[in-house]
Amino acid sequence: MTATPHAGRTARRRRVSGAVMAAPALLLFGLFGVLPLGGVLVLGFADWDGLGTISWSGADNWTAVFTDAATWDALWLTVKVMVISWVVQTPISLALGVFQAPAARWRAVLAVLWFLPLVLSAVAIGLAWQALLDPSFGLGSVPGLGFLAEPLLGSPDLALYTVIFVIAWQFIPFHALLYQAGVRQIPAALYEAAAIDGASRVQRFLVITLPQLRYTLITSSTLMLIGSLTYFDLIFVLSGGTGGPGTATRVLPLAMYITGFQSHDMGRASVLATTLVVFGLVLSLLITRLSRFTAMDSQQEGLT
């Protein structure tokens, strides 16, 4: 623009427009995202039943929560769900994603079917599996599926694994989708070169596909681990809101909900929520660290 007296005014007007445009997102996210992040830490020092007035209670909630064996049980269950979910979901998602990637008609038809769980809500999935796994009228009464006629969700030993299975059923399609997108971005030239080189299919998978998918692997693993850390909806529905039988599926988010909204102890629930936040942040930092370590090499190695 030419240097006229108008320039200054234009620049100021631009800044004002910019601020106005930024305001709604900033306000909404600040109010419901950032502010509560501080709020949850503060409420950990409060005494509040969720309805009445809030009073301060010092560090009581913290000592109460961390000397309670139930907290450590919930933490341990959360870690178990996270680790087992990752171990189960990653190889299956990777295999399905690699399978779906080539453009063939019958693969496309299968892929449409495989994506269907993505459109169901966690509540719908929970209600359906609860009925499907009913020992008397569920799948267990189909000839050949008799092994399912156990109280899978009702047994303290099996409930957690059953929940992990249903979580996998819900989320594998999404992660397969991520891997599929990842595979499709691998330059075809790499495979052509490897074929000319005489690399077998297994070699090509190990030497090209897997290394090229490491960013997808990091993304998918991050979402899986953080996702199962905070997972609530499905476990809530499958256990009828109790995290049961007993406390067999009472992971940290459920323990928080029950403490806060059923036992009306928001202070202790906030301590549990803060634990969740810290756990999540440490996990993200750890994954970023680890992934930066592998991100040092070029993603396009072999091409240049």
Binding site: A22, A25, L26, F29, L31, F32, G33, V34, L35, P36, L37, G39, V40, L43, G50, I226, L229, T230, F232, P253, M256, Y257, G260, M266, A269, S270, A273, T274, L276, V277, G280, L281, S284
Partner: peptide
């Protein structure tokens, strides 16, 4: 800074902040 705030936001699980949101 504004952009970085939203990147940070990706890491905030809504389950963890539900109690202050309820109060709000």
């Amino acid at each position: 800074w504004f952009f970085r705030l939203f990147l940070l936001g990706l890491a905030i699980p809504l389950q963890a902040v539900i109690i202050p949101v309820y109060l709000l």
